[in-house]
């Protein structure tokens, strides 16, 4: 092999760059933080798989129908009626933002702007 020094440095740089996930995790493998689910309620408004993937679309839809059309109630697939409210409906069961919302969001670099206007249950408690 010719120009061995430079080539080996090149290979190392290549490995450092493309194996970055490996290096960044190196030596600190731990379980992903799990969101804490409500203990009493077993069922969310819609089924769990749907909520996991689409909750942001779902909430956005609620926001639009409530603010623009003035509707207050949501009827789920089973015919159950819910009041469209993040703070009063969702956070009633999911009563800890930090342990439920943030764990995933922080982990996946998602910065929803819900909390610019809404108050997290923890905050509400502080005020009460």
């Amino acid at each position: 092999m010719y120009n061995a020094n430079k080539v080996i440095i090149g290979i190392i740089v290549f490995l450092i760059f493309f194996a970055m996930p490996f290096w960044l995790n190196f030596g600190k493998v731990e379980a992903l933080p799990k969101p804490e689910l409500p203990k009493e309620e077993k069922k969310c408004i819609e089924d769990t798989d749907y909520m996991k993937a689409y909750h942001m679309k779902f909430l956005d839809e609620w926001r639009k129908t409530k603010v623009r059309e003035g509707k207050v109630y949501y009827i789920n697939k089973e015919g159950k009626i819910y009041k469209m409210s993040l703070q009063r409906t969702c956070m009633k069961c999911h009563d800890n933002k930090e342990k439920f919302c943030d764990r995933c969001h922080k982990n996946l670099v998602v910065q929803p702007d819900c909390w610019k206007c809404h108050l997290a249950p923890e905050e509400v408690k502080k005020w009460q």
Partner: peptide, 24 residues
């Protein structure tokens, strides 16, 4: 939309050489 949390479980597992199929 997929279940991002499940995806991260998989991909993180792959990156740390602890591969496992997530439940989601």
């Amino acid at each position: 939309k997929p279940d991002l949390y499940a995806i991260k479980q998989l991909t993180y597992g792959l990156a740390t050489f602890n591969p496992a199929l997530p439940k989601g």
